[in-house]
Design a protein around this nucleic acid. Structure first.
Length: 463
DNA sequence: TCTGGGGTCCTAGGACCC
DNA sequence: TCTGGGGTCCTAGGACCC
């Protein structure tokens, strides 16, 4: 949200960089998962090792440099890596506890350098060296980084990393890519554009296959080519935020801070099945299992969230998400599962599902059930003004008027067809109708006592 | 034996409020 | 009867990253 601090820092000429000294360090561990395996199993040293999904639908997480020589790459289907690599290649499923332990050893070494360490992933981090009071001269930085690499290898039993140091996150990251594996690159202040401009646009963070292709169509291949585009041309090509970001990155204009302790914004779990699943009972059981994984992790981290998202990948790889935002944050697996089940009901499962996922976002550090904390939480403040109607048991007699509705309830209306409640207040109820519609627009706000609004499935009532 | 799993950020449109 | 503009929230999808 703070993305648009439009500090017009062009200042005319070569507005290169914001920091005057190369004070940002980026560390990238080399072929990390495979390196840990080779460390722990001497028989694997010097041999091609592929870590990742080993089943029929697995993909490669990490290929050792020996395996890369045969063409194995991250994100490649494991089946393809098997075709490329020779007999004797090790295909391993991965031991994440071991990777995490090793990662923690490395992150601790980085925290010895500076209190400002931002882990990007299990095998990557930025360090703000200025916050650690280091000598930021080239010789001093080189000596410090050389020493870091030696301590890293010693502390991890032989895992290596590539280090880049520059005046920004972008330059530090590019530096660590330039000399791999076991590399060290310091980009001196003032030489940023010299380093940047010959590189392919893909070297910049945020340029993936789609953006690169769009740029290639107007003959923009290198960062130098990119530098010649106007801000207007760039934003019209790749969008407002991306365009403005690339415009600055091409000028080495990157003042993003190193942020320790980033708060998670969402928690999710998903599963690709070995074979597509159609059986409703099996799908329901998978939703329960995924909701449990998510709920347990939320509870362990002391957070909960208001938006539950269901992700579905169909037999033909088409992927969709359905979400619902609740009046209150949830972390209870049963509540998460209940919403996810409902969302699953509304998607087409014919032909079978390849993947199911469940996620919770809109996180706040206030767990459900804590009344005082919930009332203090700014995020649920609006709900206090218009409290949910208690899901009082509807009068079960067929035809009885219903004056209380709860989110998720299936309803039917003679003018609007079938739908379900996604919000309710004291005097009105908001319903999303699925059609067939006799009026335009899927959402209707109706008086809560509209006599025509009925539950889709009136509960059985026995006198 | 085609294409994982865990994330972040952005965009666009509709609803809704003032 | 005709019709606004700005801002926020929500939903869905997509690009990208490791």
């Amino acid at each position: 949200m703070g993305a648009s601090s439009r500090v017009g820092r062009s200042g005319g000429g070569g507005g290169t960089g914001v920091r005057r000294e190369p004070s940002i360090l980026h560390l990238d561990l080399d072929a990390f998962f495979a390196a840990v395996e080779q460390r722990d199993k001497p028989s694997l040293r010097g041999r091609p090792v592929v870590v990742g999904g080993t089943g029929g639908r697995g993909v490669v997480a990490t290929a050792s440099y020996e395996a890369r020589a045969f063409g194995a790459r991250s994100a490649m289907p494991t089946a393809e890596a098997r075709r490329l690599c020779p007999p004797g290649t090790a295909f391993l499923g991965g031991r994440f506890a071991a990777y995490r332990r090793t990662s923690e050893v490395v992150m601790a070494l980085l925290r010895d350098l500076s209190p400002l360490v931002e882990p990007v992933s299990i095998d990557e981090a930025y360090v703000d060296l200025a916050a650690g009071g280091h000598d930021l001269g080239i010789a001093g930085l080189t000596a410090m980084a050389t020493d870091l690499k030696a301590r890293l290898a010693a502390a991890t039993g032989g895992v290596t990393g590539s280090v880049g140091i520059g005046t920004s996150k972008s330059l530090a990251k590019i530096g660590s890519e330039l000399d791999k594996p076991d590399g060290l690159t310091v980009v001196p202040a003032g030489s940023e554009l010299e380093v940047l401009h010959p590189l392919p646009v893909r070297a910049l963070g945020g340029v993936g296959p789609v953006t690169a292709e769009r740029l290639a169509q107007i003959k923009v291949k290198t960062v130098g080519d990119l530098h010649r585009l106007s801000l207007v041309d760039l934003t019209s090509l790749v969008g407002q935020a991306n365009g403005a970001g690339l415009y600055r990155l091409a000028r080495a204009d990157d003042d993003r801070p190193v942020v320790a302790d980033r708060e998670a914004k969402s928690v999710s779990a998903e599963e690709t099945f070995a074979r597509d699943v159609t059986d409703p009972a099996r799908l329901a059981a998978e939703v329960d299992a995924l909701a449990t994984r998510v709920g347990v992790r939320l509870q362990r981290s002391g957070t909960s969230g208001r938006t539950v998202t269901l992700k579905v990948r169909r037999y033909d790889f088409s992927t969709l998400t359905r979400s619902q935002t609740l009046a209150h944050a949830v972390d209870d697996p049963r509540h998460i599962a209940e919403v996810a089940h409902r969302l699953l009901t509304a998607v087409d499962r014919s032909g079978g599902l390849r993947l199911l996922g469940v996620g919770v976002s809109g996180l706040s550090p206030y767990a459900q059930g804590d009344l005082f904390a919930t009332e203090a939480a700014p995020v649920v403040e609006p709900a206090a003004e218009e409290p949910d109607v208690e899901p009082v048991p509807d009068d079960p007699r067929p035809g009885a008027a219903v004056h209380a509705w709860y989110p998720g309830q299936d309803v039917v209306h003679p003018d609007h067809g079938a739908g379900w409640v996604w919000g309710s207040g004291l005097n009105r109820v908001t319903v999303r109708f699925e059609g067939p519609l006799t009026t335009p627009g899927p959402v209707r706000t109706l008086p809560a006592d509209d006599p025509a609004l009925q539950p889709a499935d009136p509960p059985d009532w026995t006198p």
